[in-house]
Design a protein around this nucleic acid. Sequence first.
DNA 1: GCGGCGCGAGAGAGCGCTCTCTGGGACAGG
DNA 2: CCTGTCCCAGAGAGCGCTCTCTCGCGCCGC
Lengths: 326, 326
Amino acid sequence: MKRVTLEEVARVAGVSRATASRVVNGASSVDESLRHAVQKAISSTGYLPNIAARSLVTRRAAAIGLLLPDERRMDGDPHLASVVSGVTRVVRPLGIHLVLMMTGPGTREQALSDLRCGRLDGVILVHTDPADPVPGQLIAAGLPVVLAGRPLTPMPITYVDVNQTVGAALAARRLKSLQCNRIATITGPQDTPAGQDRLAGFLAEVPNAVVVHGDFTRQSGVAAMERLIGCCPDVDGVFIASDLMANGAIPVLHRSGRKVPDDVAIVGFDDSSAALTSEPELTTVRQPITDMAAEMARQLLRQISEPRSPATSVVFEPTLVVRDSG
Amino acid sequence: MKRVTLEEVARVAGVSRATASRVVNGASSVDESLRHAVQKAISSTGYLPNIAARSLVTRRAAAIGLLLPDERRMDGDPHLASVVSGVTRVVRPLGIHLVLMMTGPGTREQALSDLRCGRLDGVILVHTDPADPVPGQLIAAGLPVVLAGRPLTPMPITYVDVNQTVGAALAARRLKSLQCNRIATITGPQDTPAGQDRLAGFLAEVPNAVVVHGDFTRQSGVAAMERLIGCCPDVDGVFIASDLMANGAIPVLHRSGRKVPDDVAIVGFDDSSAALTSEPELTTVRQPITDMAAEMARQLLRQISEPRSPATSVVFEPTLVVRDSG
DNA sequence: GCGGCGCGAGAGAGCGCTCTCTGGGACAGG
DNA sequence: CCTGTCCCAGAGAGCGCTCTCTCGCGCCGC
């Protein structure tokens, strides 16, 4: 099983290597008969271009990185598969590889050097710690990056996000339309843009809402709901800023003898798989994760092909998915 | 921002490119003072080796693929993050990239050609369709592959699995120790080894168990439990062959007025995140997914470094995780 | 009829690295 | 003192590809 090179294809087709290369890369200025001969030679020899050799001269790796928080922080994050799927959809037809990197000691530096040494053409950063210096370094170096979600401190970087504020407002209006009188919210972490915006968007609609803080994790949902029914027993509608927290919070209500949605209406956020594994199934605010991920990939590819193009941000509109919890 | 090449490092250090290369690759036969000079030159120039160039001559891509079923079939599969994490742990310190590929039209062929043209050194196959010809083609071509889970039809291929039979037996014994008299099981798909083994292992312990079929998905768990309480209302212990199905099945019991675990004890399988999002939390059989994934990576690396080494299989032992459902 | 022009194909120079092969110096043995 | 041996550094040949540059050929205008 010997490797087939372009040289050999050219020999079989009776043309020069240059012409064979033109056919492989779809250049237009090749005579139809020669093109045909080359194509026949390619399929008869089973030729596959050597990406390393190509990449050496084009200085393109044809690979992008997806930098993820580590397993622990993902907490069974149901988004991962959707994100990968969205990115893949855009990137695969182009023959571009998706390299997964999970945060761990040294990962971000590794990603940076992979980028610098041309092993990766760009990276998508997910769930980035606001204090992380890497995004800043990347844009400073003019390397292609796209962020999932608005960065906490404004910077000239391309990102894709859902309109968190509008999403929270959607949830608020749903609870109001359900005639809830005593409305509360369990928030996400207030050191993240998503956490902040979901709270702000909600309070804009329900200024007198009771506010209890969580951090998006299931456990924090449990704790927050316990505090909430302690301090505010007559609550009858709660916007919980992530489905995962709602998933932890609902059993607390049940144990306290409250029925969902009859006694307390619940609206979550994310429309993650946790929305379906809750009992009852969650009414929630849906973010089009897969589409957003595809858009991140597109934005990244644009940056790769037009290096110094300006940073842009794309904001998707969320929708309310009404199920059984509120 | 110009690229730094080995040539330049050599020039700065006052040695030949060959010697610089030896230092970079940790060859032993370099004089200590020269080695030091080169190392200083590397850090002062900020040199990073160009992987494409290296890969062109070594014929190693320093990248492996992880072939996954598509999003739909994953159904919010909670394993993905754990698998990635386990593989990453082994592969990252070696500077090897993990390329994610989700099944879609043509993906498997793409993986095959990536392997053939040297863009990938090996692949890990997860949740492979038993009818899929790709694994067979891969081993026939002598390319490095590792399967997650025993293949349906025996073939000389390396795989890593958990002892499904023992796991099911663990679940069975738990239900028996709970003094359940009317024991049933909701199975996985019987055209998969996992589905078969979990049923067989269970029946070996509880030969007279009621058997209802599912396919590992949540929805099938709902449907199966509805059928089960229809045909066997006095059931008081159920082994459900995946946590996801259990997650769908438990609310059915609740709606029928049965309490878990008081009226019906439930034991799941997987110890996935669905086990924690269930109410009550699931007693379940745990597979050490992350460790298994790490082992898959190790097996793959071994195959890559010793091309024609014999296929081996590694089987992990499951453990019972007792929580609230049974 | 001749020079200029445009178009398509070939020649060849690298891209940055590894690795074999060669050469030279140090040391030991004869 | 000369030769054989060993060891370490340098020279140089590629790895397979892309892409620029050159060249030849056919066509047009004058």
